[in-house]
Structures are given as C-alpha cells and as structure tokens.
C-alpha cells in the first residue's frame, strides 16, 4: 500500500486523468466507505432519521403548526415543561424504572440459574432442555401475552380457578395496582429469561476448565469458584446482556398494552405505552414524542456506566 493509503496499481493505465480517478477508486478508504455505504444508509434511514424526526416532533405544538412555547423553558421545549408538571408523567417514570429494573434483575438471576443448571446436564440431554427453555423467547410477545391475559382475566382467570381448587382466594391479577404491576413483570421475566439463559450458557462454556481445576486444587468451595472464577470471567457478558435487556425492557410496549393497557389508574403505564396513549390515542403526537424521548437520557446514563466498566475490565485483562 502506498503512503496515501491507496493500493498499488500494477499496470500502466491510460491517461493521467483516468489514472487519478482509478487511484481514488482504489484507495482503501474509498472502498471501505463504499462497502459500508449500504449499512450507513440503513442506519441513517431507519435509526438516524426517525430519531431526529422524533426530536423535531417533540418540539412542536399539538397542531404541529409551530414550536411549542414554554413558560420557563425555551421555545420548543414546552412539551417537556408540561410533562415535568404532570403527576401522571412522574408516576410513569417511577413505574418504568420499577418495571425495568426489577424485570431485568429477575431475568438475570433466573437466566443465570438456568444456565448453570443446563451447563451441568450432559450434552445429549442439554439440547432438549435448551430447546424447551427457549420457547418463551421465540413466541411473538404480543401473542404469548394474550395467552397470559387469558390466564389473568379479571373474571375467568384459569390461574384463579386452580387456586380456588386448593381453597386459595382468587387474586385480582390485573385489577389491583401491585398485583397488576407484578403480573406485567412476571410476563416480561417469563419472556426474557431464556435470552439471559442462552447468553450466560455460552459464557459459561467459554470459561477455561483449567481455572476450575486450579481452584479445586487450592481447595475453593463451590461458592468461591462461582465468586472468584465464574463471575469475573462472565462479567463482561453479564454487563452487556443487562444493558441490552434494560434498553429493550424500558422500551417495552406490547406486554403492558395487551395485559393492562396501563390500568388500573395508570399504575402500570411505562414510557412506551404512555407515549402511545398520549401521542396516538389522544392525538397529541408531539407530546407523545416528548414522553418517548425521556427514555434516552436514562438509558444513555446506564449505557455510559456499563460500557465504561466493560472497557476498564478489558484494559485490565490486556
């Protein structure tokens, strides 16, 4: 490669003008740009443009005829100002955090436990169990949530029917606020735990067996093996999986929409379901866009800390 980054051109190639064009086309940076162009187009078209348009929408007034004026925030940020003053919105922020954090923690714990269980099953039987445990994750969530909704149905819950057989009183799964929140989290955990399981299983399989052997020689207990061998070796994958799941769970829409529609009394709304209610159902698209944009700073802060941890660990290992 030449000093300017172009590839060596072997044969004499026509006029000077043609050769400079040819050189430009053969530069590595040009080829790299051209090859990444399709991906760039997809990212800009499907991520960049909608995000920018969402930000633009959030600055408009309800009729989308001009920028939204604020009392104490600058023009264009009026929708955010109104949200700051809304009891319901702060309740949604609080609920989104409860929902996402508790669901991700439960998914991580259950996924970790399942991965350990599977890891200790012989390979032949493991495949069968792995397949079965992945089923919740491969069913479209809107469909599986509908099944859960039937089980939680306020009047005809099949779970309550079973509970009644054992003389346990019926549970108001979707009618009482804390039960409704628990129901939404249960369904999210049921759906998302297999993803953690499969990621952690892959991570477990990549931990060198020699480390466990060395630990065993040193007389480490099983808890110490887990604490000082398994967890440090899996730390990066745990961090990345938690971050990814946090983003997806924060943005969850279908489970809340199908199961509770945000009720009772808005006590199960999360950002996405509330944004849909405000933006589409109530014909206030700019305010709905402002609600959904609220996820961004929260997730950006989480992503910053998680990725900083990953980078630091990588440097330590190098």
């Amino acid at each position: 490669m030449a000093a300017d980054g172009s590839l060596a051109v072997s044969a004499a190639s026509g006029t000077g003008r043609a050769s400079s064009l040819e050189r430009f086309a053969r530069r590595r940076s040009t080829i790299a740009f051209l090859m990444t162009l399709p991906l760039l187009v997809v990212v800009i078209g499907l991520v960049g443009y909608p995000a920018a348009y969402g930000i633009y929408l959030s600055t408009l007034n309800r009729r989308m005829t001009g920028f939204m004026e604020g009392d104490w925030l600058p023009t264009g940020l009026g929708n955010f100002e109104i949200l700051f003053d809304s009891d319901t919105f702060w309740m949604v922020v609080w609920q989104s955090c409860i929902f996402a954090i508790s669901a991700v923690l439960l998914k991580a714990l259950i996924g970790f436990w399942l991965a350990h269980m599977l890891h200790h099953i012989p390979t032949k039987g493991q495949r069968k169990w792995r397949g079965m445990l992945l089923v919740p994750w491969v069913i479209p969530p809107a469909l599986s949530t509908l099944g859960w909704w039937w089980m939680f149905d306020p009047s005809y819950s099949s779970i309550n029917w079973i509970l009644n057989i054992f003389a346990v009183p019926a549970v108001p799964w979707l009618g009482e606020p804390w039960w409704a929140r628990a129901s939404v989290i249960i369904v999210n955990v049921w759906y998302g735990a297999p993803f953690f399981m499969i990621m952690y299983l892959a991570a477990l399989k990549s931990v060198p067996e020699q480390l466990y052997e060395a630990a065993a020689i040193d007389g480490a207990t099983s808890w110490q093996r887990l604490r000082y061998v398994t967890l440090p070796m899996m730390a990066n994958i745990i961090s990345i999986t938690v971050l990814f799941s946090l983003i997806v769970t924060f943005a969850n829409y279908d489970i809340v929409r199908v199961l509770t529609n945000g009720g009772p009394r808005d006590l199960t709304h999360v950002f996405a379901s509330y944004a849909f209610q405000v933006g589409i159902l109530s014909s206030n698209i700019p305010r709905g866009a402002a609600v959904s944009l609220f996820m961004f700073p929260i997730l950006a802060v989480c992503a910053f800390f998680v990725l900083r941890g990953v980078t630091r660990r990588n440097k330590e290992q190098m």
Binding site: S155, P172, L174
Partner: peptide, 12 residues
C-alpha cells in the same frame, strides 16, 4: 359492581 371492573376492557 363486580370487584374486578377496574380491569375490564370493552369485551368484559
């Protein structure tokens, strides 16, 4: 009304 009406939808 029934105790669960707070969670009823349009089909309930």
């Amino acid at each position: 009304l029934p105790d669960d009406v707070w969670a009823w939808d349009d089909a309930s």
